[in-house]
Amino acid sequence: MLHRSHWTGACDPDRKARGRRQASRGKLYNRRVDITAIVTALRERLERVLSPPRGHYRPLLVGGDAVGWLDGERASRLAAFADVFHVEQRRVGFVAGLIDCAARTQALYHVARALADEGLLTAWRNERYAVAPAPGAPALFELERAAARYFGIQTFAAHVNGLVRCDDATRMWLARRSAAKAIDPGLLDNLVGGGIAAGSGIQATLVKEAWEEAGIPDAVATQAKPAGVLHICRAQPDGLQRETIFVHDLWLDADFVPVCQDGEVVEHRLLTMVQAASVATNSVGCDVVTADASLVIVDCLIRHGVIAMDLRDYAALSKLRHPTLELTPP
């Protein structure tokens, strides 16, 4: 089903002449909107939902590399898998027999299955994340995506701001996640976003998700421009989210309307930048934006000058884009 935004008409060519007439009478279309209150509300919400983890976390070690972080309850649960883990008061490691990526991956598959059977993970994805000591380094193991937060591994994602140039203002497409999604069901999201699975990369993920979530052809998706990197580190009910987001901007034609191809998106909306900022302040109701997407929106607003440096909440919002992903052992 094609879901059209209430705002699509703002980019309709038939309205351009009317827009020019209105602009000439009062310069209504390009005036700077005072968004001070919106920016303050954004800062208050994001400081709350993106607050750093509290309490003690034990590092999951492979050799001397900390590749995950577990709270006390989860670390204690792993102690029952004595053929896989060696759990100490200050750290968790693998037993000596698991000496390579393949062995650790196989052992973790059975652990993740057991945890899933106990209801301790989100919905099984049948997709793995590669876990390495540094980006581009050989994987130390691969882990089922549903278990990523349980083990507190660093994950990577590619997100795309779908932007449109209109006469009155730059606009941004948002998407509503399906109610069947394992994470953040029914919430609003960036036009395109997805985790980077083992064996894939940033560009391949972007192109794949752009088609599946919005019907954007490959030739258009590859025009998305890298716009920076964001980080998230926060405690969630299913564990620890430690994520690096590779942000992109993609300028779309005014007459383009997204169409989901895989059922994971149920609605698309085209909003002005200020409207997107306002929606991202919501904490309750039917129009709540995911924390990840809200951070991507804020980053976009900062980069495009909508959130100006002279606003009092600018520094605090900007700082939220790059928290540390490393924790302090107990």
Score class of each variant (00 low, 15 high):
106 Q>H: 12
163 L>W: 04
91 R>M: 11
175 A>N: 02
72 G>N: 13
193 G>L: 10
169 A>P: 02
326 E>L: 13
66 A>G: 08
328 T>A: 12
178 S>C: 08
179 A>G: 09
286 C>R: 10
76 S>Q: 14
140 L>T: 03
163 L>Y: 04
28 L>H: 09
116 A>C: 08
65 D>Q: 13
329 P>Y: 12
208 K>S: 15
283 S>V: 10
201 G>Y: 06
190 N>M: 15
220 V>I: 15
4 R>F: 10
163 L>V: 09
99 I>Q: 15
69 W>A: 03
248 H>L: 02
266 V>W: 05
46 L>V: 01
59 P>L: 01
303 R>H: 14
170 T>R: 13
288 V>P: 00
300 C>F: 06
70 L>M: 13
329 P>E: 12
115 L>V: 07
201 G>A: 11
143 L>H: 02
275 Q>F: 00
204 A>P: 00
244 T>E: 13
183 I>C: 04
51 S>W: 10
27 K>A: 14
319 K>Y: 03
85 F>S: 06
274 V>W: 01
137 A>H: 09
70 L>K: 10
63 G>D: 08
192 V>L: 02
227 A>G: 05
277 A>F: 00
164 V>H: 03
37 A>M: 05
111 V>C: 06
12 D>S: 12
166 C>A: 15
309 M>Y: 06
307 I>H: 06
